[in-house]
């Protein structure tokens, strides 16, 4: 669905605002525009990749209110006033996010197509605070496929970047997980 205006059935766009990588953006979207198509086709933020477009590969992983989700399986219009972080929003000024730097250091990719999704997913996973061991990281990263098979280096990069990433989790102001390992996680009303 690269041209969302091809057949509108007489239905108009809706206005919405979203906080995208720290910047408030006013947008007009068709109801059927996915969050992924909004990013790539309307906002030219092509760091977030379209792999399967069915929630099976994880290439489109972004952080919505601090939580990792598949941008292909949600509608942009459903996220009025949400806080969205894409791969483009992880670095600060000229400095890479520690997870990005670790992926470079550990050569955690070959073709690189899955990498933005892997990195966003890994940052979301660290914020969840549920994975510690290598096995737990593998399980918690199972929603991100790498057809080049760079998994050993992806795991190494994530393990290396976990402590520094954990220290930065606070950047997700709204919806930030409680972190920690006490098993207590309140559901907001």
């Amino acid at each position: 669905m690269t041209d969302p205006s091809a057949n509108t059935g007489g239905i108009a766009t809706c206005s919405m605002t979203i906080m995208l990588n720290g910047e408030s953006r006013a947008l007009d979207v068709y109801p059927w525009t996915t969050l992924l198509d909004l990013l790539r086709e309307q906002l030219d933020l092509t760091g977030t990749k379209k792999g399967c477009d069915h929630g099976q590969c994880g290439a489109c992983t972004v952080l919505l209110n601090g939580k990792r989700i598949n941008a292909c399986l949600t509608l942009a219009i459903m996220h009025e006033d949400a806080e969205l972080t894409t791969i483009e929003g992880l670095a600060s000024d000229e400095a890479l996010h520690p997870m990005q730097a670790a992926f470079v250091t550990h050569d955690a990719f070959q073709c690189g197509y899955c990498t933005p999704g892997q990195i966003c997913s890994a940052v979301g996973m660290v914020a969840e605070g549920r994975a510690q061991s290598a096995d737990e990281i593998r399980e918690q990263m199972s929603g991100n496929l790498c057809r080049c098979g760079a998994y050993p280096n992806i795991l190494a990069a994530i393990e290396a970047a976990m402590p520094e990433t954990r220290n930065r989790v606070g950047v997700f102001e709204s919806g930030a997980p409680s972190g920690g390992h006490d098993g207590v996680r309140e559901v907001k009303p």
């Binding site: 929630g55 990792r68 598949n70 979301g124 991100n144």
Partner: peptide, 22 residues
């Protein structure tokens, strides 16, 4: 987690973390 661990385990056996968040 404390009172219905069966439910917690079944949920975590399904889908991916991204999908479970949505």
């Amino acid at each position: 987690e404390r009172r219905y661990p069966l439910l917690a385990k079944a949920i975590l056996a399904g889908a991916s973390p991204q999908l479970r968040n949505m």
